[in-house]
C-alpha cells in the first residue's frame, strides 16, 4: 500500500523516464525512431524467410501468423535481456538519490508497452495493406490481453533487474534463456505442433496463452480462450507479486552492491 502511494507520488518521474526512453532510445542513430518499427520488421523478414521458404511450415500467411506473436514476444524478451541490467545502468542515480526503486522497472515496462503499441500500428498496417481484414468484435479483447502481459512483463522485469545486481552474469544467461523461452512459446510455430501430452505443461508458460490469444484475435479473427487467459492472468499476477516481494528485499542493499 505504501509502495503504491509512493509510486503514485513519483508518477512524474515514471512519466519522464518513459518519455526519455521513448525519445532517447534511438537518439543519435540515423533512422531514429524508425528503429522501433524496423527492428521487428527485420526480425520478421528473417523468420519468414526461414520458416516459409527454407523450412516450409505450411502455415498460410505465415508472416502474419508470426508477426502477431513476434511483437508481444519482443516486448516480453526485453524484460529478460535489456531489462535485466536496468538497475545497473542507473547506478549513479541509485547511489545518490532516493526514490522508490520500483520506479525504474515500472517505467521500463511502461515504455516497452508503448513500444509494443507502436509496433502494433505496423501490424495493423500490414493487415490493412494485404487486405487480410479484422474481426471488429474480437479486437477489443486485445486490451485485457495486453494488460495481462503488462503485469507479467513487470513481474519478470522486477525479478531480473534485482537479481542481476547481485549476480552480474545473469545478464548473459538471459540471452540464452530468452532464446529457449521463445522456442518454448508458440512464436514461430502454432500450438498444433505441440504434442498433446505436453500441452498442459506447455501452457503453464504464461507467454503461451498470451501469444495464442494475440494470434486468435488478429490471425484467426476469433475471440480468445478466456479460461486460458484467466490462467495466464493468475500466473502473471503471481509472478508480479513475487517480483515486487523479491525486489523489495533485494533493493535494500542496491546502493551498496552497485
Amino acid at each position: 500500500m505504501r509502495l503504491i502511494r509512493e509510486l503514485y507520488r513519483y508518477r512524474e518521474m515514471i512519466a519522464s523516464l518513459v518519455r526519455k526512453d521513448l525519445k532517447g532510445r534511438y537518439k543519435g542513430s540515423v533512422l531514429g525512431f524508425l528503429w522501433t518499427f524496423l527492428n521487428p520488421l527485420l526480425q520478421l523478414l528473417v523468420y519468414t524467410l526461414v520458416f516459409s521458404v527454407i523450412m516450409k511450415s505450411g502455415i498460410p500467411q505465415y508472416y502474419l501468423h508470426l508477426f502477431v506473436a513476434l511483437v508481444p514476444w519482443i516486448y516480453f524478451s526485453s524484460a529478460l535481456t535489456t531489462g535485466s541490467h536496468l538497475i545497473l545502468d542507473q547506478k549513479n542515480l541509485i547511489k545518490k538519490v532516493f526514490f522508490p526503486r520500483e520506479v525504474l522497472p515500472v517505467a521500463y515496462t511502461t515504455s516497452g508497452f508503448f513500444n509494443m503499441l507502436f509496433s502494433m500500428v505496423i501490424v495493423f498496417a500490414v493487415i490493412a495493406v494485404t487486405g487480410y481484414g479484422v474481426n471488429w468484435a474480437a479486437l477489443p479483447c486485445l486490451i485485457p490481453v495486453m494488460l495481462i502481459q503488462y503485469v507479467l512483463v513487470l513481474g519478470v522485469n522486477l525479478l531480473t533487474s534485482a537479481l542481476t545486481v547481485y549476480a552480474r552474469d545473469l545478464e548473459h544467461i538471459m540471452g540464452v534463456l530468452s532464446m529457449a523461452w521463445m522456442y518454448l512459446s508458440p512464436v514461430v510455430y502454432g500450438i498444433s505442433f505441440v504434442p498433446e501430452q505436453w500441452k498442459t505443461l506447455y501452457l503453464l508458460n504464461p507467454m503461451s496463452p498470451l501469444i495464442l490469444a494475440y494470434r486468435d484475435i488478429l490471425y484467426y479473427k476469433a475471440i480468445p480462450d478466456w479460461g486460458m487467459l484467466l490462467q495466464a492472468f493468475l500466473i502473471s499476477l503471481a509472478i508480479a507479486v513475487l517480483g515486487f516481494w523479491v525486489f523489495a528485499c533485494l533493493q535494500r542493499r542496491f546502493a551498496e552492491e552497485l
Partner: peptide
C-alpha cells in the same frame, strides 16, 4: 522537469 521529477515532484 526530469530532475525535479526525480526529487518526487509532480508535474
Amino acid at each position: 522537469i526530469t530532475n525535479a521529477a526525480i526529487f518526487g515532484l509532480t508535474r
